[in-house]
């Protein structure tokens, strides 16, 4: 597996977060995509809807498994990675790049404080 990027934040449910001004870009980690196996379908939250930290943010399916997605922050969904509709396998091949999921304009920046940095996430991976 690829190394955990050092410039991102991580949730216990294996989403990654990249801060972009007053919004965050969200994806799933390399560990998450590897556990799921070949991804065949992604349902993302609708554009313009509100998501809550820890709340439902869609579904991701692989050949063998289905898994819920959870939003790492509270806010409004402001963009979606539409290419995943026809090429969900990008999440497997490039989870931190072309496999990103959506961006959220956050309402409470302090929520980011509860996310893990890469060192904490790497340690967390060792415990599960």
């Amino acid at each position: 597996m690829a190394a955990v990027p050092t410039d991102l934040l991580y949730s216990k449910t294996h989403e990654w977060v990249q801060i972009e001004g007053d919004a965050v870009r969200v994806g799933i980690t390399d560990h998450a995509q590897d556990s799921l196996g070949d991804i065949t379908f992604v349902e993302l939250p609708k554009l313009g809807t509100s998501v809550k930290k820890g709340g439902d943010a869609g579904v991701i399916e692989s050949v063998k498994a289905a898994s819920d997605l959870f939003s790492p922050v509270t806010g409004e969904v402001v963009s979606l990675n539409d290419s995943l509709e026809s090429a969900p396998e990008n999440i497997n091949s490039d989870p931190y790049g072309s496999g990103w999921l959506y961006t959220v304009k956050f309402t409470d920046k302090s929520e980011l404080d509860s996310l893990m940095d890469y060192e904490a996430y790497e340690k967390y991976l060792e415990t599960i």
Binding site: G37, D38, V63
Partner: peptide
């Protein structure tokens, strides 16, 4: 074994 490199491959 469920898979080696990936089910689709």
């Amino acid at each position: 074994p469920v898979q080696y490199e990936g089910i689709i491959k």
